[in-house]
């Protein structure tokens, strides 16, 4: 564990808490893509299967439980309590276009051709693009509640911090994980446009609005 990764995980944890807080305080999941949230459940469940056969640390164990639990809780809230505030008509990204290619790529690029390793690769690739339905929804509506942008910013920071983590690990432990690094770079790249608007508008106290 190093500081970059710890802060990254903390940002990830914070993003989820911000999202749950947003839903409870505004009593709404407006502006949140159900598809993206469902993809995160798939990501966590397929990646953390190793809970059953690999022990890393107490930290790792509880974080995994939290990510699986909280992502399922968010889906549950979106399907029950806040269902009326959800608008499927604008959440129209076709996730088949993500699931299909990620499956194929995971079958080609993995560290071992075994079910759990293929699922691990799949989860890494899927995580890198899981935010797309959310960004697509944002693009369609052209604006977002400030709290929703904080959620996205925290998610982006989480991913961005994993990059110095990998550089640090390369020099201190000699660890290089090409699958995680490639997918991580793609994932971070997807946030660049969002971050530009976030920094130039939201952090200046303005509303998040995309140029027409």
């Amino acid at each position: 564990m190093n500081l970059f990764r710890f802060l990254g995980d903390t940002a990830h944890l914070a993003s989820i808490l911000v999202l749950i807080h947003k839903m409870h305080t505004t009593k709404s999941c407006r502006g949140i893509s159900f598809k993206t949230q469902a993809l995160y459940v798939a990501v966590f469940v397929t990646r953390y299967l190793d809970l059953f056969y690999r022990w890393v640390s107490l930290y790792n164990f509880f974080m995994k439980l939290f990510f699986i639990g909280s992502s399922c809780y968010i889906l549950f809230l979106m399907k029950t309590k806040f269902r009326p505030t959800q608008d499927p008509a604008i959440d129209t990204f076709r996730i088949e276009y993500l699931l299909g290619p990620c499956t194929v790529i995971a079958l080609i690029f993995n560290y071992k051709f075994s079910p759990t390793e293929i699922l691990w690769s799949f989860s890494i690739f899927l995580e890198s693009v899981a935010i797309l339905p959310q960004l697509f929804l944002l693009q369609r509506t052209g604006e977002a509640e400030t709290i929703t942008t904080h959620y996205l910013a925290a998610l982006g920071i989480y991913r961005a911090l994993y990059i110095p983590n990998w550089i640090y690990r390369y020099f201190t432990e000699g660890v290089v994980d090409p699958i995680a690094i490639t997918a991580g770079l793609v994932q971070t790249g997807l946030y660049i446009d969002f971050f530009y608007v976030y920094v130039t508008k939201v952090l200046q106290g303005q509303k998040f609005e995309l140029p027409a």
Binding site: D9, H12, S57, M63, Y111, R169, V175, V176, D177
Partner: peptide
Amino acid sequence: TAQHTCHDEL
């Protein structure tokens, strides 16, 4: 001896 997996990451 480079190690090629980060299975200890979240």
